[in-house]
């Protein structure tokens, strides 16, 4: 069925990878995220110490420093979850990753655990931006953001 002109946007719910308050990206104290250079999205002030898959998909990338993870949702949406600010400088210290690039994941699967105290001791904030890295290419729009107490982080419309 090829119906390009009348293609309806697909809806995709991105759940919170970790519980916590939702923060506008513009308030994240790292210009790469606040200026949306990495893409549009939202951030969370994490309450827990575990990042779980925010949707079904596949692991695209885990850097050696284990402070971030990229996933591809089933409809091609790419997400980057970046735990903390400037945490690349910790060289992996305080992070434990439970998956590998290429692994399929289901929503809620444990991805990365982090040691709140160890990261705090190094003076790093835990603010966690979650951004869509291929929004232009896939014509993805953020329809709405979740609230502080809901499980939903954002609702996307995928038109690509």
């Amino acid at each position: 069925m090829l119906n390009i002109l009348g293609k309806k946007a697909e809806k995709l719910i991105i759940y919170k990878p970790v519980k916590g308050k939702v923060i506008d990206l513009s308030e994240v104290p790292d210009a790469v995220f606040s200026e949306r250079l990495m893409g549009d999205g939202a951030a969370i002030e994490p309450e827990g110490n575990e990042v779980a898959a925010p949707c079904d998909g596949k692991v695209l990338l885990v850097p050696k420093t284990l402070h971030a993870i990229a996933l591809e949702a089933e409809n091609g949406v790419e997400l980057l979850i970046h735990i903390g600010i400037d945490t690349v400088e910790l060289g992996g210290q305080g992070f434990t990753c439970h998956v590998n690039a290429g692994d399929p994941v289901r929503r809620g699967d444990k991805l990365i655990s982090f040691d709140r105290e160890a990261i705090g001791r190094e003076g790093k904030a835990l603010t966690t931006p979650i951004v869509i890295t291929n929004a232009e290419e896939k014509n993805i729009e953020i329809v709405k953001l979740g609230t502080d107490n809901s499980d939903v982080l954002m609702e996307l419309a995928v038109k690509g």
Binding site: M38, G39, L60, L61, K64, A70, L80, A101, T133, N134
Partner: peptide
């Protein structure tokens, strides 16, 4: 070159 994840995956 347009894929941020692609570039980061090269490490």
């Amino acid at each position: 070159g347009k894929s941020i994840i692609g570039i980061m995956s090269l490490g």
